[in-house]
Design a protein around this nucleic acid. Sequence first.
DNA 1: TTATAATATGAATATGTGTTCATGTATTGT
DNA 2: ACAATACATGAACACATATTCATATTATAA
Lengths: 103, 103
Amino acid sequence: MMSDENYQSLDEETLFLISQTFKALADPTRIRILHLLFNRELSVSNIAEQLDLNQSNVSHQLRFLKNLRLVKYRRDGKTIYYSQDDEHVMKILQQSIDHATHH
Amino acid sequence: MMSDENYQSLDEETLFLISQTFKALADPTRIRILHLLFNRELSVSNIAEQLDLNQSNVSHQLRFLKNLRLVKYRRDGKTIYYSQDDEHVMKILQQSIDHATHH
DNA sequence: TTATAATATGAATATGTGTTCATGTATTGT
DNA sequence: ACAATACATGAACACATATTCATATTATAA
C-alpha cells in the first residue's frame, strides 16, 4: 500500500482529532475519571468523593470528555450518571495502564 | 488488593508516567514527527524540511520525545539521526491514526 | 412556595506549553 | 587556525490549561 519512499502525510483534520483525543488522556485527573468509569456508571458527586476532587472540577473535566464523546450521561432525578462512550479510547487506556504497571 | 466493586486505583507514579506519555501524543507537531519516524530514521534537518518547521522547534520536540524514551538517536559526523524507540507507543499511534481515518 | 440537593457554568488565576530568536557546541573540511 | 554545517540550548513570549470560587440551573421534597 505504501512504499518506504511514499509517505502519506496526515491531514489537518485527522491530526487535530487525534491530538485532541490524546489530550484527554494527558491529564492525571481525566485518566482517573475514565479509569473509574471503565466498567460502571457513576454520578458526578460519587466520582468527586472517590477521587477526592471538588464537584466543580469533576463537572469541568466531564464536560471536556463529553465534548469529545468519550463519555455519555443519563439523568435520573437530580442525579446525572456518567459512563464511557468510546470503546477504542478505553481500550488504549487499559493497554497503557497494563503496559505501565507490568513494567 | 481489590475492592468489592473490583476497582484497582492507580498509584501516583503510574498515573504520572501514563499522562506524560499521552502528553507526547497530544500535540500535532509531535504526532507528525513520530509519524515520520514510523519506519525510518531521519536527521533533524530532514524532519524540519519535510514538516516545514524551523530547526530549533524540531530539536526541542525531539528532546521532549527523547526524555520519554520514545525516540533514540545516533550520530554520524555532523548529522544526528533520530528513530523510534517505543514499539508500544508507536503501535497505539498507528491504531489511532487508522481509527481516525477509517471513520 | 420555599428549601435543599445535584450538577453546570463563568470568571479569575496560577501554572504549563509550543514556538521563535539568538546564541552555543560539536564536527568536518580547508 | 578558520569557516561552514548540523544540531542543541536558554530566554522570552503568547497562548492553553487545570483548578477553585462564587453563582446559576434543574429537579425533588416539604
